[in-house]
């Protein structure tokens, strides 16, 4: 199998402000269309991107209040795979310590939130989370 090249890369710098996740969602839609994903796949990508942005807005505590998104389309001759990196420069977290939410527990719990990572993992093909003292990067990919 030949190695995939970067066919297109789009970068977006977003302020962490209300509703900015919808801007990321619109950008994700445009790049996913270029990548040749199906309508349902595009919907999944935009929902996953929305969740990654909301997670960063709510939990990163980034001093610069900025989120960096990189949309990369890979392929040989035609687009084959879209990867999206959502990066903040916040305080980081330990992904392994995040308890997986369960509906049975959430129904009885005061706090019903905390679904973002589970949704992202469920909608995308591959998800990698790198996090440390210099921030968090969520990389999520989907192939045609």
């Amino acid at each position: 199998m030949s190695e995939q090249a970067i066919l297109r890369e789009v970068r977006l710098l977003l302020p962490m402000a209300p509703d900015m996740e919808t801007v990321a969602s619109q950008a994700a839609t445009a790049v996913a269309q270029y990548a040749g994903l199906s309508t349902d796949q595009i919907d999944e990508v935009r929902m996953a991107v929305t969740e990654a942005c909301i997670n960063a807005f709510e939990h990163s505590r980034a001093a610069d209040k900025t989120l960096e998104l990189t949309f990369t389309v890979f392929g040989t001759r035609e687009p084959e795979r879209l990867c999206i990196a959502v990066r903040d420069r916040g305080v980081g977290f330990v992904p392994e310590r995040v308890e997986e939410p369960r509906i049975e527990t959430k129904l009885k719990a005061e706090r019903k939130r905390g679904w973002g990572i589970k949704i992202i993992r469920g909608l995308m093909d591959d998800v990698t989370i790198r996090s440390g003292a210099d921030g968090t990067t969520v990389v999520m990919c989907k192939s045609r």
Binding site: M47, T50, L107, K112
Partner: peptide, 20 residues
Amino acid sequence: TKIINSIGISILIEIIERML
């Protein structure tokens, strides 16, 4: 509705809890 986020869904879970 073409898009929803997990915060909105969490509120729907509150409604489910109330219905139960």
